[in-house]
Computed example of a mutant assay.
Amino acid sequence: MDESSAARSAIILGIDDLRPLPRATRIARTSHEGVLLLDEHRDQEIDELWLDHDLGGDDSIMPVVALLEETAFDGRPFRIGMIFVHSANPSGAETVVRVLRRWDYRVRRATA
C-alpha cells in the first residue's frame, strides 16, 4: 500500500490557554504558538480546529483569526473540516464565528 492510499490519522488542533482538549492531537497555549502550529500544518487537511477566544492576560485568538482571514483573502484558505469556537467570552466567541464564516470556513460554537 503506498502512502497516498494509507489511512491517515485525524489532525485535531487546539488553541486554548487552559483546557486539556483530550481529542486534540496538538495544543497551542498562546496565539503566537497557535500561528506557528497552523503554519506547521499549512499544506495538510486539518480535521478539526478548536479555538478559545481569551488566552490569558492580554492575549486572544485574534492573531490566529487574522491569519485565517489573510490566507482566505489571498485565495489560499487553510483546509479545515470544522472550526469549533469554545469560550467563556460570548461576545468574543461570536466575533470569531462571524469573521470566519465571512471567509467560508465551517464554524460552530461548542463547549470543550
Rank of each mutant, 00 (worst) to 15 (best):
T71F: 06
E69V: 15
D47A: 06
D58Q: 07
A72P: 10
L51C: 03
R76S: 15
F84P: 06
D58P: 04
W103F: 15
D43W: 09
D16R: 03
N89E: 04
D104F: 14
D58R: 06
R106I: 12
M82F: 06
W50D: 01
S31W: 00
H32Y: 12
V64W: 04
F73C: 12
A93M: 00
E40V: 08
V85H: 00
A24C: 05
R23G: 07
T111A: 10
P20V: 12
W50R: 01
D43V: 05
E33S: 09
S9T: 14
D17Q: 10
V96K: 00
A112M: 09
R19M: 05
H53W: 04
P90A: 08
F84K: 08
T111P: 04
A66V: 15
A93C: 06
T95L: 10
A66G: 12
R26W: 07
S9P: 11
A6H: 07
R42S: 15
S87R: 02
A66W: 12
S60P: 03
H86T: 14
A88Q: 08
I46Y: 05
A24I: 04
V85L: 00
L100Q: 07
H41M: 09
D54F: 03
P77R: 05
S60Q: 04
D58A: 10
T95M: 08
A93G: 09
T71C: 07
V99N: 09
T25M: 05
D58S: 09
I12C: 05
A112D: 11
H86V: 14
S31H: 02
A66S: 15
T111D: 12
F73Q: 14
G56I: 03
G57N: 05
I80K: 03
I11V: 12
V85P: 02
R26Q: 15
D104A: 15
G57S: 02
